[in-house]
Computed example of a mutant assay.
Amino acid sequence: MRRLVLMGAAAGLLLAACAPVPVRKPADQAALAAQAARERQLAGVEGWTLEGHLAVSDGHDGGSGTLTWTQNGERYDFDLRAPITGKSFRLSGGPDGAVLEGVEGGPLRGPDAETLMRRALGWEVPLRELRAWVLGLRAPGGAAELSFGEHELPALLQQDGWAVDYRAWDLSRQPPLPQKVFASQPPYKVKLSIDSFRLAPAPCADCGR
Rank of each mutant, 00 (worst) to 15 (best):
V56M: 11
D206H: 11
A9L: 15
V5D: 11
A11W: 13
W169I: 08
W123G: 05
D28H: 09
R40S: 02
E39Y: 05
K87H: 10
L177S: 05
C207W: 05
R90G: 04
R24N: 00
P201S: 09
L14P: 01
D28E: 11
G52D: 09
S147R: 14
R167C: 05
R38L: 06
A11E: 09
A205H: 02
M117E: 09
V190R: 10
L80C: 02
G136V: 04
K189P: 00
F78N: 07
R38H: 09
A55W: 09
G12A: 13
R131K: 13
E51F: 00
V103E: 05
A19Y: 07
K87F: 00
R118Y: 03
E39N: 01
Q174F: 03
V134A: 04
L156Y: 08
R75S: 15
V21Y: 05
D79Q: 09
D28G: 12
A34V: 02
A10E: 15
V190H: 08
S57N: 06
C207S: 11
A16N: 07
G8T: 03
E104W: 00
E74F: 01
R119Y: 02
A9F: 06
P203Q: 04
A113S: 12
P154V: 07
R198W: 01
A139D: 06
A200N: 07
R131I: 06
L171N: 08
E152M: 02
L91S: 11
G161K: 13
L15N: 15
A132W: 14
Q71W: 06
A16R: 15
R118Q: 14
A10Y: 01
L130I: 06
P154Y: 12
S193K: 13
V56R: 13
C207D: 06
E114D: 10
